[in-house]
Design a protein around this nucleic acid. Structure first.
Length: 906
RNA sequence: GCCGGUGUGGCGAAAUGGCAGACGCACAGGACUUAAAAUCCUGGGACCAUAAAAAGUCGUGUGGGUUCGAGUCCCACCACCGGCACCA
């Protein structure tokens, strides 16, 4: 394949224009207050050349963002540039359309692989990381993306993570005031009357912070030597590496994301994301409305509180289940059951999460020997413990209604517990056993005859009146486990001290002490005793005043929670982002605010996107940002599969390396193919022959513009100087324009072809239908190939349409087109986007399909403005329709203007 | 099990309820060439028919429905992909 003749000299064109853009800083975005350099194409377009870009002089902004990559050692794969190409095309389109476009790129560069490499080799993760970033930068730049590289950032930059630490301190210093439902400084926290001593007040304050310390059981992954967030554990295994995860109580930093559950849910309605993505977040947040109900323990003063979404089935509760870890188990268990209960609790405690889910197929549990009293009717019901009830959800206890809950039913079957109907399905044919839908209450005392929604209201009101329960909302969402036992992450700006009584407590470093740098280490393994690697640096850990540093680090998600804000003002040394830049780039422009378009993979549907929204809302509450949501419109690009239709992976050997494709076909063809494969959001397989297709299209574009003889001369000259790239660049000047291109008036047919193309490309870009936009350009080129005379203006306009997709070849031809006619070429990326003229598209005569009884029989030609009578007559006379009309009566004629005619006959 | 999405030629795909398969790949035939590559031209859903065609019939996962007319809307089902999964 490498031996085949090049369609056009992309290998000379692409580096040439990439250098030009870099020298011009062509894609630098200007914030309010920036000075636009003299002669910068953006300044020339908008009358700001050499001027200070005052906010009222800047055009409307458009912030278009890619999910920044983790710079892995493996380099870019073809999935990365899919989204990047889409955003680049739109960024270029918006620039041409007159917007002030912000299109930045950076690196999510903290992460485990560099650390694992450091453990093995002793090489500092920063060295690995920088090498990987250099490689990613080279690859991304070779694709000709129009990023504003002056705003490049890496989460591992000291200047960057300083502010990550600073934002952590904002969380640390805040609490959520339930009155306002907003984060406020802990200074405003009111203390209960029984907090008298400073120690008590401190403990109370620490329990309210948005960043707090918890001793709860966590997901410990021995293989990775760290804890993981719930979100990072899949089926009891680590998301990274697939290693077993066990539960282990440890002291950990948590972020109180649950305080924002309601707002994270409600504000989904204000943003333009796909329904499926919103649904994923909704499910993850998992809001459910129900009631808490108090059950008395028979013969005891203890009360067991349960949460249920079906209080209307309270009369059907035939037993009760506590989570094995429930705090009342010890107090209610009877002597006879003591050993069995203890045995069961130990057994479940030893289970890993994996085992717990695997064994979920079979219900297990033990009777405690105790009974509870059903508050509605005083019935004595047995209290069991079972691990199908989770300690961490609701109250850790349930009332079991086996007749109308699948899990309770299964448990009751296994342990022979009674099943009592309290719900009648609306459909008499449906079995009431195991019926969990809405129906009518039966065998339920005062609820009898009520529909499920009414019964819920009635029983809740009854419980509230008696003081036995109340309406409650629960969330599946848990607080975010925020600490990791790693080296290559942001150190916490926290120290630990001891009070007079010898109790440990934490204290934040002052903002002025930031950034807090990690210590240098010789060995990156966890410290002896399972302590995080930072604990190895004892002189770093131990401070002169006797306090010790926190040795955990932040998870990789921390840096990606706010990078889109840093781009707005990447060099600011005094703030994480300046107010003017923030309010300009995140402004609303009359619609919901934030990043105008964010493109990335679905793998971040619940992790990154939920965390970032949470941080953003905290910053919003504290007045640091002006919008409640970070990302207004979000689009997930689909996965690119290998040519075998399987997920690309090294082991399958179906990975496509963009570098190889670029050598063979060039960046423009690569970009075009990534977009031509199919809709951006779809999963689709890579096909190298498909690349050749769009490559050939670019060859056709090239031949549409250049003179064939000069092309041959160029190629011969090129063969002679093949080794010398510098001379090769000048050789481009041997290529002459096609003689058919001239300054002449376009024919109506040519204008029609052009304006149809402008319309198609423009509308498809607005709808992000890149594949059909490209096919629209192919239609234009196929048509234009037949033209003897090519009007200069038409050819120029076409290049403007092509430029966002294949910018290098478009620039080369644009420059040549102007120089040949002695004109100075205006900047292509900043030339105003062409408008289509509907008048050029109207037809005088149109083809109209003629149907008989809904079946196509003929096509007639009529004047575009023909009246119904004319159309009807023509249709009835249609030659090929005659056999179907012969001997029949026409009962009805349906004419859809400009669409079709349908003759209904009997 | 629940939620979301997708099913159209050999393949990637396209079609505001109005000529299904635009555009491209692969394929076949032709032109150019000593030859090949590249390029250019032509063809193409299936069936039936034919020397070749025309005409005709069927056709967008399956089965129903709404409509003059359904790939598109409604109902039921099947398959595949993604997410969640003892969350009471």
């Amino acid at each position: 394949m490498a031996s085949s003749r090049r369609q056009y000299p992309f290998q000379l064109i692409e580096p040439k224009w990439q250098q030009t853009w870099e020298q011009q800083q062509a894609f630098r975005a200007f914030s309010p207050g920036d000075t636009v350099p003299e002669g910068h194409p953006f300044g020339l377009r908008h009358g700001l050349s050499g001027k200070v870009a005052a906010r009222n002089l800047l055009p409307e902004k458009f912030y278009i963002l890619d999910m920044f990559p983790y710079p892995s050692g493996a380099g870019l794969h073809v999935g990365h540039p899919e989204g990047y190409t889409a955003t680049d095309i739109l960024a270029r389109y918006r620039r041409a359309a007159g917007y002030n476009v912000l299109h930045p790129m950076g690196w999510d560069s903290f992460g485990l692989p560099a650390e694992q490499y450091a453990v093995k080799t002793g090489q500092h993760p920063r060295v690995t990381t920088e090498a990987n970033i250099a490689n990613f930068t080279r690859q991304i730049k070779s694709l000709g993306f129009s990023y504003d590289w002056s705003r490049e950032l890496a989460t591992t930059d000291v200047d960057y993570f300083k502010w990550t630490q600073w934002i952590f301190l904002r969380l640390y210093h805040s609490w959520l005031n339930p009155e306002t439902n907003k984060a406020e400084s802990v200074e405003t926290l009111p203390y209960p009357a029984d907090c008298k001593t400073e120690e008590q007040r401190r403990a109370y304050r620490d329990s309210k912070r948005l960043a707090y310390v918890s001793e709860a059981p966590v997901n410990w992954c021995p293989e990775l030597g760290t804890v993981l967030a719930n979100e990072e554990v899949i089926d009891g295994k680590s998301e990274v590496g697939g290693f077993p995860v066990i539960r282990k109580p440890m002291r950990q930093w948590m972020l109180r994301i649950t305080a924002y559950a309601e707002r994270l849910l409600a504000d989904l309605d204000t943003i333009d994301w796909s329904d499926s993505l919103k649904e994923m977040q909704r499910n993850w947040i998992g809001r459910s409305e129900g009631a808490e109900v108090d059950f008395e323990v028979a013969g005891s003063s203890e009360i067991i509180r349960v949460f249920t979404t079906r209080p209307d089935t309270l009369f059907g509760a035939t037993y009760m289940v506590l989570a094995p870890e429930h705090r009342l188990v010890d107090q209610i268990v009877t002597e006879e059951q003591g050993a069995a209960v203890e045995n069961y609790r130990e057994h479940t405690a030893r289970k890993s999460d994996l085992e717990r889910t695997e064994l979920a197929k079979e219900k297990s549990g033990v009777f405690t020997g105790a009974y509870a009293l059903n508050p509605v009717n005083g019935e004595r019901i047995p209290i069991w413990i079972a691990d199908y009830v989770l300690a961490s959800y609701g109250t850790g206890a349930i009332m079991a209604v086996p007749a109308h809950d699948a899990r309770d039913f299964e448990f009751a079957q296994k342990f022979n517990l009674p099943v009592l109907q309290v719900l009648q399905p609306g459909d008499a044919k449906t079995d009431w056993q195991g019926f969990t839908g809405d129906g009518t209450a039966v065998h339920s005392g005062f609820l009898n005859g009520l529909s499920t929604p009414d019964a819920k209201k009635a029983i809740t009101a009854w419980l509230e009146e008696k003081g036995l329960g109340k309406k409650t909302v629960n969330f599946k969402l848990r607080d975010w486990l925020f600490s990791r036992q790693r080296y290559w992450g942001e150190p916490f700006p926290i120290v630990w001290k001891k009070d007079a009584a010898g109790n440990l407590y934490h204290e934040a470093l002052p903002d002025g002490a930031l950034p807090l740098l990690p210590p240098a280490l010789d060995d990156y393994k966890p410290a002896p005793g399972g302590e995080p690697p930072l604990a190895r640096a004892q002189d770093w850990v131990n401070l002169p005043d006797g306090s010790v540093r926190e040795t955990n680090t932040m998870p990789q998600w921390a840096g990606s929670c706010w990078y889109y804000l840093r781009y707005l003002d990447a060099k600011n040394a005094n703030a994480f982002v300046g107010k003017d830049a923030e309010s300009y780039w995140m402004a609303s422009n009359g619609k919901a605010a934030g990043v105008d378009l964010y493109v990335g993979g679905t793998e971040h549907a619940v992790l990154h996107l939920l965390y970032a929204r949470f941080w953003h809302k905290v910053l919003f509450d504290l007045g640091h940002v002006a919008t409640p949501e970070p990302f207004y419109k979000l689009v997930n690009q689909g996965l690119i599969l290998g040519s075998d239709g399987q997920k690309m992976s090294k082991s399958r050997g179906n990975v496509v390396n963009p570098d190889d494709v670029l050598v063979e076909y060039g960046a423009d063809a690569f970009r075009l193919y990534e977009m031509f494969m199919g809709p951006l959001q779809d999963t689709k397989p890579w096909n190298t022959q498909g690349v050749e297709g769009v490559y050939r299209f670019l060859g056709r574009v090239w031949r549409l513009f250049v003179d064939e003889k000069s092309e041959t001369a160029f190629e011969q000259a090129q063969t002679l100087t093949a080794e010398n790239a510098k001379e090769g660049k000048d050789l481009l000047d041997l290529i002459l324009l096609d003689g058919g291109i001239a300054e002449r008036d376009a024919t109506p047919a040519q204008l029609k072809t052009l304006h149809a193309c402008i319309k198609k490309v423009t509308e498809d870009l607005d709808g992000m239908r890149f594949n059909t936009a490209i096919s629209g350009m192919m239609v234009f080129v196929n048509e234009a190939m037949t033209w003897q005379a090519k009007p200069l203006s038409v050819m120029k306009t076409f290049l403007q349409l092509l430029a966002p997709f294949a910018p290098h070849v478009a620039e080369e031809l644009w420059a040549r087109l102007h120089s040949t006619f002695g004109q100075t070429a205006p900047s292509l990326p900043y030339s105003p986007w062409p408008q289509w003229d509907p008048a050029r598209l109207v037809e005088s005569e149109i083809e109209l399909p003629v149907q008989v009884n809904g079946k196509l029989r003929d096509v007639i030609k009529v004047a575009v403005d023909a009246d119904h009578a004319t159309i009807e007559a023509a249709a009835k006379a249609a030659e090929k329709a005659q056999p179907f009309l012969a001997g029949k009566t026409i009962k009805k004629v349906i004419i859809v203007p400009k669409k079709m005619v349908n003759l209904i006959v009997t």
